[in-house]
Design a protein around this nucleic acid. Structure first.
Lengths: 152, 152
DNA sequence: CTGAAACAGGACTGAAGAAGTCGGATATTG
DNA sequence: CAATATCCGACTTCTTCAGTCCTGTTTCAG
């Protein structure tokens, strides 16, 4: 529970891989799948999803493949997860929808909605670039990129 | 995905309910189940789990039931979820275990482990007392109880 | 212009986990 | 003893995830 699906994992890994190989104009699904030992057909569908959601650009034909649609810093982990798994909510009964059918007393939800927002905020603060291994190992400590605060 | 199980939801709701009725020495599983429209047998098992993990105290026999083992402020949402659903990790392949069998290149995990820690921190900062409806509606704004900060 | 290499996408199966039920055992009290 | 509880394992059902299969379509090299 409270787990990312493997698809989301795979998607993040694939984007990370693409971000680490900017020299290549495009990498095929098979390339990425082989690099990580992921089932190629499964990854293909994930990359298609990411393409449909505007995170990747695809090109068919020989020497085709996928490339990041934007700079790696402009793609957040949140977007990736959203594109692959759809909107996520920590509670089974989100107050937006008409769930909570039999339990109008779902007063638990309001506090947990804030937890949900916090998680979303954290995921939004992480970019694909953050996941990728950047070369410069020297100055890394001075990067206060993501900062999320929650107040109950 | 990234959802709490219904069991965890039910558990939180039940503890909240108990916290809101401190005058009663004990409430039976059926009492709570009826209050929220939860299947009684299912809730019973959840309450048993919470008892086994030291969050509740149980008493069999007539007029028996469950009561909080500690003050509502001393029971965190994290403990509840942990007791009901077991340890949770956001990534399918946690770096502690021997997972990631075929993919030694799971470099995604390290950043996501921090997300995991952040979520855990948020959940730890929320107590059952926070979930319950306290009476004093007057001074509520000055309560800076939970505060979690994450720096990447 | 033809074939290989890629993307696109629907349909399907198997496995795993979640949700809920059933039946019975034990403890407590009136 | 009988009623009301907790306790607990086994079971069924349902849903979702993971993965496969198959069939197209696009693109480009030769």
């Amino acid at each position: 529970m409270l787990k990312l699906t493997k698809k989301a994992d795979y998607g993040l890994m694939a984007l990370k891989y693409l971000a680490e190989h900017p020299e290549k104009p495009a990498l095929s699904a098979k390339d990425v799948a082989d690099a990580y030992g992921i089932p190629a057909q499964l990854l293909a569908k994930i990359l298609q999803l990411l393409t449909k959601n505007g995170l990747l650009r695809s090109h068919a034909g020989m020497n085709g493949g996928y490339a990041l649609a934007r700079d790696a810093r402009q793609i957040s982990a949140y977007e990736v997860i959203l594109a692959i798994d759809g909107p996520f909510f920590i509670t089974s009964c989100t107050k937006g929808a008409k769930n909570c059918d039999l339990t109008p007393s779902c007063t638990i939800k309001e506090p947990l909605a804030r937890v949900n927002d916090t998680i979303a905020g954290v995921l939004k603060s992480i970019s694909i670039h953050d996941l990728a291994e950047h070369e410069q190992p020297a100055h890394r400590s001075h990067a206060p990129q993501g900062l999320v605060t929650l107040t109950l």
